[in-house]
C-alpha cells in the first residue's frame, strides 16, 4: 500500500459572512451590530488520491470545489478536519511543499501582463531555483507539447485567451510539480483548444507521473481524462468512484434507440418516446425493465436495428444534482 498523494479526512471550511438585509435602516443597524452567518463551504470531506491518479472533481457552482482546491494548495485554512498533500500539511505553506505543487486557476492569471511569457518564465525559474539545464529541458518539452514556440516572445496582453491559458499552464508546470490542481483550466476556450489542453494534461500525467485533481464544467474534459470522479454538492461528498459507476448509480433509465420499417408505429406502450424521426425511435425506459422491453420490441415489431445506451454524461450529472436538491 503506497502512501496517498492527497489525503483528506473530514475536511471542513465554514465561512463567517455578515448577514444584512437591504435598505437604509438595516445598513445603519449593521454599523453597530453585525449579524454573522455561517456558510458551510466544505462539509466533512474525506477522500484519498494515489500518486499518479487523474481525478475529476465535479459539482455545480458553489459546491465547494475551489475552496477545497485552495485548502489543498495552502491558500485557505480549513475550519476542521485534516488533510495532507505529499505528506505535508498544505496550509503551513512550507517551502519544500510549495515547490512540489501547483494550482492553475482558469479565471486568473499569474503571468505579467506587459511582458512576454518567456520573461515571466525566467522569473519563475529563479523563484523555484531551477538549474538552467532543468529549466531548458522542461521548457523545451512544454513548448513542444503545447506548441508555445510563436507565443513566448509576444507580450501576454497580445495573446488570445487560449494562447494565454497555454502559457499559464506552462508557467505553472516549469518546476515539475508532483501534484497539480487544475481549477477550470479550459473555461471559456473553444472546442479545439479544450481538446488540445486535455490531450496535454493526459500526456503530462503520463510522462511525469504527477497526481492531478481537476475541476471542469465540461464533461468532455472529465470523460476524456478521468477514470475516477469525485462529486460534491453543498460541500458534501456525493459520489467517489469510477465514472461508469456514477452513471450506473445515478441513472434510473436507459435509452433504447430502435429503427423500424414502419414510420408510424405507436411505441408509447413500451416506454417514454423522447424522439421519433423517419422510423428511428428513441425510448426512455426504467433500467430494470430494459431487458424485458427490448425482448418485447424484437418480438412484436419489424426491427431493423436496436441500440441500448446510457444517457449522456451531462444528463447524469444534472440528475445527480437535482436528485440531491429534491
Amino acid at each position: 500500500m503506497t502512501e496517498p498523494a492527497i489525503h483528506l479526512h473530514e475536511l471542513c471550511k465554514t465561512y463567517r459572512v455578515p448577514e444584512r438585509e437591504s435598505g437604509m435602516g438595516a445598513a445603519l443597524k449593521s454599523l453597530f451590530h453585525r449579524r454573522m452567518q455561517d456558510i458551510k463551504a466544505v462539509d466533512r470531506l474525506t477522500f484519498d488520491l494515489s500518486p499518479g491518479e487523474i481525478v475529476g472533481f465535479l459539482g455545480p457552482n458553489g459546491a465547494g470545489k475551489t475552496t477545497t482546491l485552495k485548502m489543498l494548495s495552502g491558500l485557505l485554512h480549513p475550519t476542521g478536519g485534516e488533510g495532507t498533500v505529499l505528506g505535508s500539511i498544505p496550509w503551513k505553506r512550507e517551502r519544500p511543499f510549495l515547490r512540489q505543487i501547483t494550482l492553475v486557476m482558469g479565471q486568473r492569471n499569474q503571468l505579467v501582463w506587459d511582458i512576454p511569457a518567456a520573461d515571466s518564465f525566467e522569473l519563475n525559474r529563479v523563484i523555484y531555483r531551477l538549474s538552467s539545464t532543468d529549466f531548458r529541458h522542461t521548457l523545451n518539452e512544454l513548448t513542444e507539447l503545447l506548441d508555445l514556440g510563436p507565443l513566448l516572445k509576444k507580450p501576454v496582453r497580445n495573446l488570445s485567451l487560449g494562447e494565454r491559458m497555454k502559457c499559464e499552464i506552462a508557467a505553472a508546470l516549469l518546476h515539475r510539480p508532483q501534484v497539480v490542481f487544475l481549477d477550470e483550466p479550459t473555461i471559456g476556450l473553444d472546442v479545439t483548444m479544450q481538446r488540445r489542453i486535455r490531450a496535454f494534461i493526459a500526456e503530462y500525467n503520463r510522462r511525469s507521473g504527477a497526481t492531478v485533481l481537476l475541476t471542469s464544467h465540461y464533461m468532455a474534459d472529465v470523460a476524456a481524462l478521468c477514470k475516477r470522479v469525485i462529486v460534491i454538492h453543498h460541500g458534501r461528498l456525493l459520489f467517489d468512484g469510477d465514472l461508469s459507476a456514477l452513471v450506473q448509480q445515478f441513472t434510473a433509465h436507459k435509452t433504447i434507440v430502435v429503427q423500424l420499417e414502419d414510420c408510424h408505429a405507436d411505441l408509447h406502450t413500451y416506454g417514454e418516446v423522447i424522439n421519433c424521426e423517419d422510423g428511428r425511435f428513441t425510448l426512455r425506459v426504467p433500467k430494470a425493465q430494459t431487458a424485458h422491453v427490448t425482448e418485447r420490441l424484437l418480438a412484436d415489431l419489424p426491427v431493423i436495428d436496436l441500440l441500448v445506451e446510457d444517457p449522456p454524461i451531462e444528463e447524469v450529472i444534472d440528475q445527480v444534482f437535482t436528485q440531491e436538491a429534491a
Partner: peptide
C-alpha cells in the same frame, strides 16, 4: 482585490 496575492502565496519565496 484581484486575488493576485494567491499566486504570490503559492510561490516558495
Amino acid at each position: 482585490r484581484q486575488g493576485l496575492l494567491s499566486f504570490a502565496l503559492l510561490k516558495p519565496v
